[in-house]
Each structure stands twice: as C-alpha cells, then as structure tokens.
Design a protein around this nucleic acid. Sequence first.
DNA 1: GGTTGTATATACAGACCGGTCTGTCTGTTG
DNA 2: CAACAGACAGACCGGTCTGTATATACAACC
Lengths: 187, 187
Amino acid sequence: MPQTSPKTSVRERLLCAADRLFYNEGIRAVGIDRVLVEADAAKASLYSHFGGKDELIATYLSRRVQASRDNIDAFVADIPAAERAYRVFDFVIAWTESSDFRGCPLQHVVSELPSADHPARAVAAEQRQYLLDQFSSWSRAAGVRDVEQTAGALMVLFDGAVAAAEQDGSQRARDARWLAERLIRGG
Amino acid sequence: MPQTSPKTSVRERLLCAADRLFYNEGIRAVGIDRVLVEADAAKASLYSHFGGKDELIATYLSRRVQASRDNIDAFVADIPAAERAYRVFDFVIAWTESSDFRGCPLQHVVSELPSADHPARAVAAEQRQYLLDQFSSWSRAAGVRDVEQTAGALMVLFDGAVAAAEQDGSQRARDARWLAERLIRGG
DNA sequence: GGTTGTATATACAGACCGGTCTGTCTGTTG
DNA sequence: CAACAGACAGACCGGTCTGTATATACAACC
C-alpha cells in the first residue's frame, strides 16, 4: 500500500491512512483525528465520503480482503488445481515474512468489533465463505476422500498459520504448510 | 466466572467485572468507568489495586491464562501422555461450544494492543511458551518422528481452532481435532 | 476512645472521541 | 463570467477517556 501523492483524491488518501493506522495500531486505538492528520484531509471530507468511522472501517477491511483475494488468485494461477490446497501456504509464508505483517486484519476486526451488526462483520463473513469455497474446490481437485472435512481443516490451518505467526513468527506458517501438504498428499 | 457477592473484595469484583466486559466487548471498547459501575467500586480502589488500566488488563489476561492452564492440566490428567496431543482438542471443542465462548482472550490482546511493551504482552508470550512446551512433551510421548515440527503444527492447529471457531462456529474445533489425531496417529 | 487499613463519593484536569455545521476556497465547465 | 463540485479550516457539540486529588466512611483491633 504505497504512500499517496498530493494529486490523489481525498477518498483514496483517507483509505490509505486508515489502512496504515488501523492495521498497525488497532481500529479502536486510532481515532478519526489521527486518520485525518495522516491523510491531510478535512473532517467533513471523511463524513462526506464515508458516513462515519464504521463505514470507513468496513471499507478498509473490504479493500484488504479484496487485495488478499487478488493476491491469492494470482499466486495460484499457474499452480495445478490439485496442488493448490497446500501450495497456497507458500503465499501465507511470504506474507508472514513481509516486514509489514501484523496478523490478519479480518481476525483483528472480529476481535475488536464483537457486535455482529457492525458493517465490517458482513465483509468478514463473506471472506470466510470465499476461503471455504476455494479450499473445497482445491480439495476436490486434489482427489481427497472427504472434501468437506479437508476444507474445514484447511480453514483451521489457514487461520492458525496467520494467528500463530503473529505471535511466534513465520515459522508457524511453515509448520502449517508442512501439515497441509501431509493432509493433501498423505504420508 | 461467577457473579461476585457483596462480601467479595473490591479487587476481586474489579477483576470479575473486567473479565466479563473486556472479553465480551473488547478491551479498548470498555472504559474504566464501565468496569467500575459493573464492579460497584470506586475509581480510587481501581488505582489503589492496579496502577491503572494497563495493569488491570494484564491481570485480567493473566487470570484467563492461568485458568486455561488449570483447565487443560485437569482435562489431560487422566489421559495417557501419548494421546494428549490430540485429545486436548476435545477440551477445545467443549470450550468453543460453551455459551460464553468468544474466541481467545490472548489473541484479542495481541490484536488490540500491538505495542510489544504493554504489560499484557509478556503474559501472552509466557503462555505461548507453556503451550509449546506441552505440545512438545506430548508429541515426544506419542513417539512422533519430528517432535519440533509436530509441536509447531499443533500450535497452529490450536490457534486455528480457536480463531476459526470464533468466526465459523465449533465445527472448526472438530476439524482441528480430526487433523490433530491424524497427525499424531497417522492415517 | 484512638488507630489502622480499606473503601468510598466526588470533583477535577487535560486529552480525546465521533459527529455536525458554517463559511471559504479552488478548479472545472458551460 | 456564473455555477458547481469537491475540499478545506475551524468551531462546536455532547460525551468519554485515564488519571489525580481530597475528604469521608466504615470495620476491625487495641
């Protein structure tokens, strides 16, 4: 997520600032005034583009989620479908090794905003469905015996890799990849 | 965590109130005035027993963590050491099925308090070490070939079970148990 | 009674919170 | 030129945040 140039629209500047601050410091830890200073924007602009902080949060998460999907889709594009279920964990490893990795924004939202009717929660739920659909599809392509069970286990591994890496470092993403490969290929 | 009686010490009342509110609503979402009202306590008592909110948070997490250890230790006490690594996930399943389950308090702390020097973060780090030690010990007792790799994978499964269950429900803890057993017993 | 330890009620300070509003400015278009 | 859209600065609102300070109350003990 690059720094914005002066010519960037105020909406984009707000979203970039929110992205940096919310992800690195926490959603509730960062008030809108900090977002505004970081974005060099006026408060009225924030309320004009987003009804309020809640919608800014939901849009921030939506963009994070969309970027994640695009990255995953691009990563697996040249990988045979039968190998994607475990080789996608190479993507997770790279992510957890990146200097700006601080865990999963979706998990953060779920932690910080427990209310099921927060607009960001719908974004989170939709991403869960996407991931499950992918893992199911890839499990089927790998020819596993129990697609539903395997896809569920892969969801666990995916979440666990990211959560554990946030605390213990990227070795946990490697651990997850090791187990995912054993799960798919046996042995 | 039961309701406190009028005879309970103010420190205990504060901790019980903090426990309920922080866990259910989020640490930053709950200000100390809400803790005080819930505990029927005066502000000076809070500052007298805990230097401030940060120490209250650290103590809340420490108690959660200690309770978790006690529960796990009690749960596995009558289980042969060779079976603990996967049968501990029955404990996780029961936890994720309980009506007051809302994910892992330790993961919440890591999400909400990114600063490594927050007092609660030391509590979190110490609990990671305890879990790794347990999984290593149980993996060794199970006779697995690569103890370190297996323990790491179990850490991923543990974290993943809890994080995924917070979002998708307790079926994910069952998925984790299924994979943990396959990992330990093969097949 | 006096002393001690604990807890309380209350006021305050300064900073911050999300949101609303008004007036002004700038660049673009017809 | 006028009109407009977008963005801005700044004031304001009521409320909340954490922490500090003071006087008082109460129970237990000697």
